[in-house]
Simulated scan of single mutants.
Amino acid sequence: MAKIEKLWFDSDRIWITTDEGQTLSRPLEAFPTLKDATDTQRSTFKIGRFGNTIRWEEIDEDIHISSFYDTEEPDYDNEIARIFRRFPQLNVSEVAKSMGIHKSLLYKYIYGMKRPSEQRKAQIKESLHLLGQELMAV
């Protein structure tokens, strides 16, 4: 397997070059923790001893080189993304917590990096409906 030699960011992607001469990138939406990190936090990383992992200690993020071989690009215009764009005041972390899922998974649904099942979509909507009912009671 190739080894990571260099890593950098642009406004919306993370890039690497490998010892085999490949240049690979992924959208930052694939890594919500990095997307939310500051430029300083992103620049403070270590490439693992075997050259196949990257670690950001401060933000507790790890990425394996295999993540860069996924060629599927995000679907930014999905139903879950539209809901969260319509209501930007929603706190993704709190919605995820109320559903009992990790916020990074909900972010991946929002950013179109993963496609939720119909059951998961219903669960997300139900969680938001419950929040709406609580707000109506105020």
Score class of each variant (00 low, 15 high):
I54T: 09
H102L: 05
E61G: 01
P74Y: 02
R86Y: 08
R85T: 07
N78R: 04
K125Q: 09
E61P: 08
E72P: 00
F87C: 05
E79T: 14
Q41T: 09
W15S: 09
M99I: 06
Q22Y: 03
K108F: 01
F84E: 04
D75H: 01
D60M: 03
R82W: 01
H64Q: 07
Y76K: 14
D36V: 01
R115S: 05
A122I: 04
S117E: 02
E118N: 12
H129T: 13
W15D: 12
T40A: 15
I47G: 01
A37Q: 10
G112W: 08
T71S: 10
L128K: 13
E79S: 15
I80N: 03
A96F: 09
P32D: 08
Y111I: 02
A81S: 15
S67W: 02
A30G: 13
Y111D: 06
G21P: 11
L130T: 11
A122R: 14
N91F: 04
H102A: 15
T71M: 10
F45K: 04
T40S: 12
F84V: 10
V95Y: 07
F45N: 02
K97I: 00
L34W: 02
K125D: 00
D36Y: 04
T33N: 03
A81C: 10
Y109T: 01
H64T: 09
D39C: 02
I101H: 06
S98F: 05
A30M: 09
I63H: 11
D62C: 08
K114T: 07
S43W: 04
G100V: 09
W56S: 05
V92S: 03
E126A: 13
Y69V: 01
H64K: 09
K103E: 12
T17Y: 00
K114C: 04
E72I: 05
I59Q: 08
E57A: 11
H129L: 13
K35A: 14
K97V: 00
L34D: 09
D77M: 05
A37R: 03
Q119L: 03
E79A: 14
T23N: 06
G100L: 06
G112S: 11
M113V: 13
L105P: 01
N52K: 15
K46R: 13
Y76L: 14
V95W: 07
